[in-house]
Design a protein around this nucleic acid. Sequence first.
DNA 1: TTACTTAGTGTAAAAAATACACACTATATT
DNA 2: AATATAGTGTGTATTTTTTACACTAAGTAA
Lengths: 229, 229
Amino acid sequence: MKEGLAQFNSVFSIDCVIFGFDGGELKILLIERNEEPFKDWWALPGNLVSEDQSLDQSASSILTSLTGLRDIYMEQYYAFGDPGRHPQGRVVTLAYYALIRLGGEKDLHPITTYAKRAVWWSVNDLPKLAFDHKKIFDKGLEKIKRRIKHQPIAFELLPEKFTLTQLQHVYELILGKKLDKRNFRKKMLSFGVLRELNEKQKGVSYRAATLYKFDRRKYAKLFGKEISF
Amino acid sequence: MKEGLAQFNSVFSIDCVIFGFDGGELKILLIERNEEPFKDWWALPGNLVSEDQSLDQSASSILTSLTGLRDIYMEQYYAFGDPGRHPQGRVVTLAYYALIRLGGEKDLHPITTYAKRAVWWSVNDLPKLAFDHKKIFDKGLEKIKRRIKHQPIAFELLPEKFTLTQLQHVYELILGKKLDKRNFRKKMLSFGVLRELNEKQKGVSYRAATLYKFDRRKYAKLFGKEISF
DNA sequence: TTACTTAGTGTAAAAAATACACACTATATT
DNA sequence: AATATAGTGTGTATTTTTTACACTAAGTAA
């Protein structure tokens, strides 16, 4: 810290709600803590922000260290800083959510230092969480619910090539309600941001569905026109 | 700071974009700095977060100290923390926006310690701002543009009793586009959150308009049903 | 060949959004 | 008293969007 700046001793951290989707349920990545406080509890992955990193970089490095993946979609969404949220002192934490496609084959092997292990948990069946992490999670889920209505974030949870049924499934999971198949397809295709491929699903024991890609170029050209579910 | 917590020396502050409306233009409250760095520059009001205050309390006290008002509508919206955003060291700042009705009569007399004075500036004619405050302002304006489409924040900028034309004016200012009078009224009234008063505008030199109030009870009963502009 | 499972498709009805213009009323002016 | 002025307040027809709804097609497995 250079001179001249009024000093204030505070601790500033970042916590991540990392959503993952493998075709079935919506999951988040939790770590089992190996340190006090809340030793042995499940918690959101996070760390302290180092002096030379930007906030996004810091969040990014949490994601990479846990999953081995780079360029994950993520978004800062809220700062939690009640005095007393951390039993050992004042810690302001900035929450990020991230969205990951979970490859069916190669399972992630999360590497962690301050944690025993990291595990994907279904969002419908979470354990008790350390600190105020439940509150942080709730707000994160709420944020992506809002966001998926207007922004093309569902594609971040899907493989590059996906079927319309899979896409609908993601919307249904996040919005928490059933959608009508015909209306969903009609609307989704009407935005003109999907490219139909000459390719079908493989390895299914029923009629294979057509695969689609999200076309970022076409999406970029929409500008103001809003996607809305 | 209690023992046991990994120490990290950082500075954490809060900056506020305080929007005000007096019936004419949309304005924000800026302070003229009296200290280095950026001495004599215009800046967003802000301060450091003290150890025992919650983030909202801290923002709240900025608002109250500047305007003398309490219970101002405000919302945390983004954290800015690029290394280098502050010339004297690492300062992470959390941005809030606030919305204020500017009474025509009693002008606000902002009281400030680290500033020479505070002045309301039209958002269409802002001076150059200190630090990355322009970026912070831009993001704040963007946020309230989004928010006014779904949340009843326009009423925070208006006196308790207002005319439909005044309400429409607020929407037009924030959304940055003209709206059709008949359609605006039809839609706004259809939400059923306004109460028509047996009272007319006073002191105008033309036909006086009917006054309305925002009815929070009715709004609360809407629950899921979304207002949408 | 048959049974099974999911893919893929259209239409009618209802609701919402849009475009659009003039008479009314309170005050100020002469 | 008459007139000018300025903003209030209102309805309808058209288009667009949303909703509700059910069967056939295609591929796989037995």
